[in-house]
């Protein structure tokens, strides 16, 4: 399969020259499931947080985009409470902008950029988006609070796992079963509503 050899090359590159603020981990035998971490950029409300993502590489990669999802809760107009990301590079044309010359690394960089620069005009979380647009201070405050919580709950440095409501868990989920609880707790605290998603 083309994707395997390509992935190997990509991951080698990622290991040797990772983009700043991004880490990737993967196992040799399961190349299609990759864990990534993005460090909240300074100057953003996510500063100080480490955000875990899971990447699933489809069979047809690189002719299809990788599926990327946040495992760590994040307060962001383009990322929903299940961690899904609204980003054109993650979708196929004509709707999206995925193309085979992109790769895991560039996708992660785009996500990093998206974190710093939300796109409220293509929101996934309508509420957060309008907050971002019309009351930026509130948004920043909340986002910061969320990031705070992550840090607190993160003393045990283990890879965060999603609550797995719809996705299967990663290979090493046993190691950090508690994170899902964390996430739930977090959502509960914030009394997270589930805004409608306008971004499909």
């Amino acid at each position: 399969m083309q994707r395997i050899s390509r992935l190997k090359r990509e991951l080698q590159l990622l290991n040797t020259e990772p983009p700043p603020g991004i880490h990737c981990s993967f196992s040799e035998e399961n190349l299609e499931n990759i864990q990534a971490q993005i460090i909240g950029g300074s100057g953003t409300p996510f500063e100080g947080g480490v955000f875990n993502l899971e990447i699933k590489v489809p069979d047809r990669y690189p002719f299809e985009p990788p599926q990327v999802r946040f495992l760590t809760p994040i307060y962001h107009p383009n990322i929903d409470s299940a961690g899904r990301i609204c980003l054109d590079a993650l979708k196929l044309p004509p709707k999206g902008a995925w193309r085979p010359s992109l790769n895991i690394s560039t996708v992660l960089s785009s996500i990093q950029l998206l974190m710093a620069e939300p796109n409220p005009d293509d929101p996934l979380m309508a509420d957060i988006s309008s907050e971002f647009k019309y009351s930026r201070a509130v948004y920043l405050e909340k986002a910061r609070k969320w990031t705070e919580k992550i840090r607190h709950t993160e003393e045990a440095v283990c890879v965060l796992q999603g609550e797995g409501e719809e996705q299967q868990k990663g290979p090493d989920e046993e190691r950090c079963g508690k994170t899902s609880r964390k996430r739930e707790a977090l959502s509960a605290q914030e009394n997270l509503e589930q805004p409608k998603r306008s971004c499909s």
């Binding site: 290991n15 880490h23 981990s25 993967f26 196992s27 040799e28 035998e29 399961n30 864990q35 890879v159 290979p171 090493d172």
Partner: peptide, 20 residues
């Protein structure tokens, strides 16, 4: 990398065949 290391150690036998 840490995870990859662990994984490798953990399942070295399995991965052997996979590697092949």
């Amino acid at each position: 990398m840490e995870s990859s290391d662990n994984a490798e150690q953990g399942g070295s036998e399995q991965s052997d065949s996979q590697r092949r």
